[in-house]
Amino acid sequence: MKTLSIIVPCYEEEDALPLFYPAVKKVLDTMKDIKPEFWFVNDGSSDNTLAEMKKLHKANPDEAHYISFSRNFGKESALYAGLQASTGDYVVVMDADLQDPPKFLPEMVKYLESGKYDCVGTRRVDRKGEAKIKSFFSNAFYGFINHISKTQIVSGARDFRMMTRQMVNAVLSMKEYSRFSKGIFSWVGFKTKYLDYHNVERVAGKSDWSTLQLFKYAFSGIADFSQAPLNIAVWLGGVSSILSIIGLIVVLVRHIINPASAVFGWASTISIILLIGGLQLLCIGIIGRYIGKIFLQVKNRPIYIVKEKA
């Protein structure tokens, strides 16, 4: 009998957890050759998420386990903590809001047991129910990062995926402080099968991902798996330097040909200075983001801190 570990990162999910557990259990009960273990990770929730986890653990002490952080460390840290705690032959990551359909679990196990795949992921073929602007930027992000990075990420891919123990160990071997799991799952390789499905709305609660947070997460992914921003900074600096040299030559030639020519174009000169200054600040900012990631990594702080675990 194979053991299946279900990793569930949770933040403010007190309403969703009572619905999530029975929905997944209903599917697992049909899988006679699978022994499940749940790992709920409380990512510093301020509501009753931890209390709901404790209820599940008390009712199912051998099956439902929980980890509670000392504060909010982010979903990536919660996912990593769950993977570290898992002991199953197969490990699946799911959201508590049931946007990841439990009905796929038997099919996922079937693909892994065939030996042809090391991972079975899922991807949404549409974003019905989401804001159009968010869908637009999401699609643009996937197109952009796949264009500038050697690590290809499937458009619409979810964190909802089932992996073999070998792949989980490979993911855990990557101990970087700044984590972008979609990129990590792709970077470690292994044969992956994707299952398509239409978007499912949350059963309870609301998403804690704002547009600004998604932008920050997207930039983090780009910086973690591509040096393109640094290359852009180099090109901007090079082009600015060349244009400056050309401008200097034009001024010198003009002075030689007509020394008495009047000085003009004060406003355009100031505009050019401001433009070049802005480009310099942009390039310094890009470099600073990469240096900041290095700074956080070399301090070797823990990815998360556990307050309670059962």
Rank of each mutant, 00 (worst) to 15 (best):
M1R: 11
S5F: 05
P18C: 08
L19D: 02
T30G: 12
D33W: 06
E37M: 11
D47H: 06
A51C: 12
P61V: 04
D62P: 08
H65E: 09
Y66K: 12
Y66C: 10
F69M: 06
S70D: 14
S70R: 09
R71P: 01
A78F: 01
S86P: 03
D89W: 02
L105H: 01
L105D: 08
G115I: 03
C119V: 12
V120Q: 04
G121H: 00
R124I: 04
R124L: 07
R124M: 08
V125K: 09
R127T: 13
K128G: 13
S135R: 03
G143S: 10
F144A: 08
I145K: 05
A170Q: 09
S181W: 08
K182G: 13
F185W: 09
K191T: 15
K193N: 09
K193D: 04
L195E: 08
D196H: 08
Y197T: 14
V200M: 06
G205W: 03
K206F: 09
S207K: 08
W209E: 12
T211I: 11
T211W: 05
L212M: 15
L214W: 13
K216C: 06
I222C: 02
I222D: 00
Q227I: 14
N231C: 14
I245F: 08
I246Q: 07
V253D: 02
H255L: 13
I256K: 03
A260H: 08
V263C: 06
I272F: 12
I273N: 10
L279A: 07
Q280E: 15
R289P: 00
Y290E: 04
Y304Q: 00
K307D: 15
